[in-house]
Design a protein around this nucleic acid. Structure first.
Length: 876
RNA sequence: GCUCGCAUAACUCAGUUGGUAGAGUGUUACCUCGACAAGGUAAAAGUCACUGGUUCGAGUCCAGUUGUGAGCACCA
């Protein structure tokens, strides 16, 4: 190694390029280690094609990459399917703004020209996301990268649509939908409700016969032009007699009846409700029940129409204050109260959403039925499991899904209307030649496009070739893909798109493939800032993952995210945590430097026999770590798996392995091999530094050899109890001596002599331990003894007792420490004795627990004896 | 209103079928001893939110309370 510290920027791009060029990321990238019938498939949730990488992406793709690299190294034929999403509304809005900046409108440009612009923008901006992703070191099968509007996926969308259309599962109709006056129709979940301080306007409606007036209360006075009734509860004694009478709407003087409907809550407001069937979902139902007229008072852009009389031409929200003022002037406003209520906003543009009657396309909710059943039969498993509750409750209340969008950017609905014979049909053919019924050439395609989530709902199988035709076969997908990779093994995504995306994939996957699309669904939480606040541009607390990669490294960002990713828990990201990981990478670098000071290169573990005691001990610890990392990764416990690596490499390998090797240089070759093996274990988390150190210790350059990423993930998990027991004693003795030395103010000094009393270790074992203890405890000479040593400071460890002879030292602090220790032991003894004296405990507790407790009690008691003895001797 | 989380050391958080409470950071003391001061050694620090229950035994299971967060629904 030539430099003084590891420089990630020098290796990350270089390694990534080599990995990708060599095709390691592709499904046969690990061909040499693939095992029969082991297949793993995971889909990348396609990020918005014109977006840029944010910290949430960094988290989700890091976790996906960890699992993918793990499976790939573990011999699975692995597909991680990458791609991007066309993101209808978001992308269209961006392009519209560009055009507006040029002083034009999209209508002036025309649909065709607009789409050209959108594609251009997609080409320009579409690579940003994927190139940023590469910086993160992720390893999806890039050669298969898809786009939700590429040719094959357009075909699959048409295939799906036509199928559902012909089955009657897609229908078109005039219904009340969520309408954004900017973005058009939205599905139910695209509306975000927010608390809003509004007003409750109490309006006077005079009776038609001039015999007085009634008071109705509303939050949206501008809709009253569409009122076609006033309703009261049929049992309401106050108003019963009014049912059937007529009132006149203020200013416009249209007469409407007072009707009775039990929907009315008598306690709320005045108990009199204006009914506006065309502008309120409840009133819509009331209107149908009572056969009322549906009067729409503003157009698709929210501009009031003729029904609004003098207010025609005003925008609905702007009109409110004008209307209220006028009503007040004319004496129609009884009072205005403040009123807190929920107002729906468009999730894209934050515009206030209106209930609006419109002719739209819907997928009927029946489509979800089987996928709900199968999920509850356990055919797909959620991690963490409680998400199934949210899934069920949402799926259970599912209403028809509005899938048409008044946009140009997206999959245009493949339905055609013949103007000659009025025939309507859905066509697989992008450009049909004639009406299939009357052969007329006079027909037009529905102008709307499909909800973006319609195409992403097909993602788990459309990317595998379903419905693609065969144009891109063997390039983007292969013939057997569906057979090999459907259902996908796993989905990793954020809980926030459980309904938007996961649920939709479940219904579509089940419908078209007959099987749920995933075996496992891992939903991760949110990344927050160090104060636990949500990151947002307006708050200015956004952490840009690319900045983090530049300032630290991709490895550091990845590991920090992984070690923080406890299931179901939000992640607080902070500079402190990144620094902790940076220190960890520095530790690894230095450990490797130490190894290289002692040998040029190191073999791979497994190619040779471990001879040294230390080597055997460390390999046992590695095996324990291997077992744990595997178990944790198999359960998607990323934080636990990462913590195990941290613990093993720092607290075991460096703190003890390397230190002990200073007393046994012969073990260093073995430790190097073990370290290399540990790099494999760590590779999924930190792909770059592990590759670097692995090659360094092998004395190779990646350019001339195979990558660590297609070596076998460690499999050995056998523990060597015997060696572990020996080293536990060694470490205990070392810590005990160090503790004793602190007491006599000799902490960091070398001392001449120390005695160690170990019960039950053979002379041979003791001989082996000697050098290690001398070196690490800094003692000139260790002598093993069988009895207490007089005139000595002692320390009682877990497995041994040590004595440092002393002539003249201050004993007071030693005595106080021992007294404290004695108190602690006393507490422990009374607790354990209490348990063991309890007949019911002894009768009911399992044998191994009893044994463990008895042993613990005996231990504590003998320790206590020794402490007491020590105290006695010192206090003389 | 319904559903689902969370509450453990000063701070951030682990704690997987119930079996003597863990990590990192921070704190204190000491250490430049040839991997690493982005480091080392040692130490101190917890009525596991509260109340009750089940059990021989509860941070862990059950019921309730308080605080806190999220999702869904309703609101003329």
């Amino acid at each position: 190694m030539s430099t003084n510290s590891y420089e990630p920027s020098k290796v990350e791009d270089r390694f990534y390029k080599l990995w990708e060029e060599r095709g390691y990321f592709e499904i046969d990238g690990n061909k040499a280690i693939q095992k029969d019938d082991k297949k793993f498939a995971i889909m990348m949730p396609p990020p918005n094609v014109t977006g840029s990488l944010h910290i949430g992406h960094a988290l989700t793709f890091t976790l996906q990459d960890i699992i993918t690299r793990y499976k790939r190294m573990d011999g699975y034929k692995t597909l991680w399917q990458p791609g991007t999403d066309h993101a209808g509304i978001a992308t269209q809005n961006v392009v519209e703004k560009q055009i507006m900046a040029e002083g034009k409108t999209k209508e002036e440009l025309g649909r065709e020209e607009f789409l050209k612009r959108a594609w251009k923008w997609k080409e320009f901006s579409g690579n940003t996301m994927v190139s940023q992703l590469r910086k993160l070191g992720v390893s999806p099968a890039w050669k298969r990268e898809r786009f939700t509007m590429d040719a094959g996926l357009q075909k699959s969308v048409r295939e799906a649509f036509v199928h559902l259309y012909n089955e009657g599962l897609i229908i078109r109709g005039n219904y009340m939908v969520n309408w954004c006056t900017h973005d058009g129709a939205l599905s139910d979940i695209e509306v975000e409700y927010e608390e809003h301080q509004g007003n409750f306007y109490h309006m006077k409606y005079p009776f038609a016969d001039g015999s007085g007036e009634i008071i109705v209360a509303t939050t949206r006075p501008e809709t009253y032009f569409g009122d076609t009734a006033v309703m009261v509860h049929p049992e309401d004694e106050r108003y019963k007699h009014l049912i059937g009478k007529k009132v006149k709407l203020p200013l416009i003087n249209r007469e409407i009846p007072i009707i009775a409907d039990s929907y009315v809550d008598m306690e709320f407001g005045t108990g009199m409700v204006k009914v506006t069937p065309a502008h309120d979902p409840n009133d819509y139902e009331v209107g149908k029940r009572h056969d009322l007229e549906f009067i729409t008072v503003f157009d698709e852009s929210g501009i009031l129409n003729d029904f609004a009389g003098e207010f025609k031409g005003l925008e609905r929200l702007a009109a409110r204050s004008v209307i209220v003022k006028r009503l007040d002037e004319e004496g129609f406003m009884e009072k205005v109260e403040e009123h807190m209520h929920q107002v729906g906003h468009c999730y894209r543009c934050k515009n206030v959403v209106e209930p609006y009657i419109s002719k739209q396309w819907f997928i009927r909710s029946e489509i979800a039925k089987k996928s709900i059943e199968k999920t509850n039969e356990g055919q797909a498993k959620f991690f963490p499991p409680h998400w199934i509750n949210s899934y069920n409750s949402w799926m259970g209340e599912l209403r028809d899904w509005c899938i048409s969008r008044q946009l140009w950017w997206g999959h245009q609905i493949p339905v055609f209307y013949c103007s000659t014979c009025n025939h309507e049909w859905a066509s697989m053919d992008e450009h049909p030649h004639e009406c299939p019924k009357c052969a007329s050439k006079e027909f037009a395609q529905d102008p709307d496009v499909l909800d973006t989530w319609f195409s992403s709902a097909l993602w788990p199988f459309s990317t595998l070739g379903w419905g693609n035709g065969d144009s891109e076969m063997d390039r983007l997908f292969e013939t057997d893909d569906l057979k090999e990779f459907y259902p996908n093994s796993l989905l990793i995504t954020g809980f926030d798109i459980l309904f938007f995306w996961v649920a939709r994939m479940m219904m579509m996957g089940e419908t078209f493939m007959g099987k749920l699309p995933f075996e496992h669904i891992y939903l991760h939480a949110l990344v927050r800032d160090e104060n636990g606040d949500k990151m947002s541009k307006s708050k200015g607390n956004v952490i840009d993952p690319l900045d983090t990669i530049n300032d630290y490294s991709a490895d550091i960002l990845r590991f920090t995210l992984a070690v923080s990713a406890a299931q179901g828990r939000d992640i607080r990201m902070s500079g402190d945590k990144l620094e902790q990981t940076r220190n960890f990478t520095n530790k690894l670098y230095n450990a490797s430097k130490y190894l290289q000071m002692n040998a040029e290169t190191f073999p791979d573990l497994g190619g040779f026999c471990l001879d040294t005691e230390l080597g055997k001990y460390m390999v046992s610890r590695l095996n324990v770590a291997t077992k744990e990392v595997r178990a944790y990764l198999d359960e998607y416990r990323f934080n636990d798996a990462a913590t195990v690596m941290y613990r093993f490499l720092w607290n075991e390998f460096c703190d003890w392995g390397i230190e002990l090797s200073k007393a046994d240089k012969g073990s260093i070759i073995e430790l190097g091999a073990i370290f290399k093996e540990a790099m494999k274990l760590l590779h999924p988390f930190m792909p770059f530094i592990t590759e670097y150190l692995y090659q360094e210790l092998s004395g190779k350059e990646l350019e001339e050899t195979e990558s660590i990423m297609i070596t076998n993930f460690p499999t050995k998990t056998r523990r060597r109890e015997e060696e572990e027991a020996k080293f536990e004693i060694i470490m205990d003795a070392i810590v005990s001596i160090r503790r004793a030395k602190v007491l006599v103010d000799m902490a960091n000094q070398k001392i001449a002599k120390a005695y160690v009393k170990i019960d039950g270790a053979s002379d041979e074992a003791k001989e082996m331990m000697k050098a290690y203890i001398e070196k690490l405890a800094k003692v000139e000479e260790i002598e093993f003894c069988n009895a207490k040593v007089a005139d000595a400071v002692s320390d009682i460890g877990e497995k041994c007792e040590v004595f440092i002879p002393t002539a003249s030292i201050d004993l007071a602090p030693i005595i106080s420490r021992l007294e404290k220790q004695s108190e602690k032991l006393e507490k422990e003894i009374s607790k354990l004795a209490g348990m063991l004296n309890n007949e019911r405990f002894v009768a009911n507790a399992p044998e191994d627990v009893l044994a463990k407790n008895r042993e613990a009690l005996a231990d504590a008691q003998s320790k206590q004896e020794k402490v007491q003895e020590q105290l006695n001797s010192l206090q003389k």
